[in-house]
């Protein structure tokens, strides 16, 4: 008899000596799950918890909280909290986003995509400012302040014309943005159908190519071939 077989017999004997309790417990535990049953993991979310996180706003206004603000009030808040990056009139400082202007420029060689010229929904302003602005100190504005800043941004874009217009959950949801109709569903499968090609050309596919542009002439690639110092 091999050494391992005799060791196994000894082990079995010692399990038997431990008695009935052990073997009953082993029989009940199985490496299996109850089919079709839920996992039973996680716990119910409390209303206070949902309220703390569920601040999102939809284009139909669902999710907008109570509160109000006007462009006039928003101007003062914007100058203090937003203009360092976005400029006094939403013109953008450096490469920070331009918020106003650009109306009618979307077909231009250099389009100016701003809240007024491009954004389809005014509600997005509230959702975004509430979660992400001011940059570096997010979630620090009250709902009244957010309504006011949103009102000021809309007034800079002439979407709101009266500096005392009250923006609130009812009036914000009704605002129609200039470019609301400017978007359509992804149509690549139809408008680019010819990119599906069973027999792409393999030889003599085109005339002799000529270089018409060079990245090194543009000269905007970061300098140095060795990368930054890394420790």
């Amino acid at each position: 008899m091999s050494r391992s077989a005799s060791a196994l017999r000894a082990l079995t004997a010692s399990f038997a000596a431990l008695g009935l309790l052990t073997s009953v417990a082993l029989a009940q535990q199985q490496l299996a799950i109850k089919p079709g049953a839920k996992l039973g993991l996680g716990r119910a979310a409390l209303p206070e918890e949902i309220k703390a996180w569920d601040t999102d706003v939809r284009p139909d206004g669902v999710g907008l909280p109570d509160g109000k603000g006007t462009p006039k009030l928003g101007d003062a808040i914007f100058q203090e909290r937003c203009s360092t990056c976005h400029g006094e009139f939403g013109e953008g400082v450096g490469r920070y986003p331009v918020l106003a202007g650009g109306l009618g420029s979307l077909k231009a060689d250099r389009p100016d995509k701003t809240v007024g010229s491009y954004w389809p929904d005014a509600t997005t302003l509230f959702d975004y400012i509430k979660r992400a602005m001011p940059y570096g100190n997010a979630r620090s504005l009250t709902d009244d302040e957010i309504y006011a800043v949103a009102a000021y941004i809309l007034s800079m874009n002439d979407v709101i014309k009266d500096e005392n217009f009250e923006l609130n959950k009812n009036t914000l949801a009704k605002i129609k943005m200039p470019n609301a109709a400017g978007f359509y569903e992804d149509d690549r499968d139809t408008t680019e159908k010819h990119f599906w090609n069973k027999s792409p050309c393999m030889s003599n596919c085109r005339d002799e190519p000529k270089v018409i542009g060079r990245a090194i002439s543009v000269d905007v690639t970061p300098e140095g071939k060795n990368g930054p110092a890394v420790d």
Partner: peptide, 18 residues
């Protein structure tokens, strides 16, 4: 909307180009 939509030459933009 303001990002990740693809502005086309006619001034309109494709959305949901996932």
């Amino acid at each position: 909307t303001s990002k990740y939509t693809d502005l086309m030459p006619d001034g309109r933009a494709r959305k949901h180009t996932f």
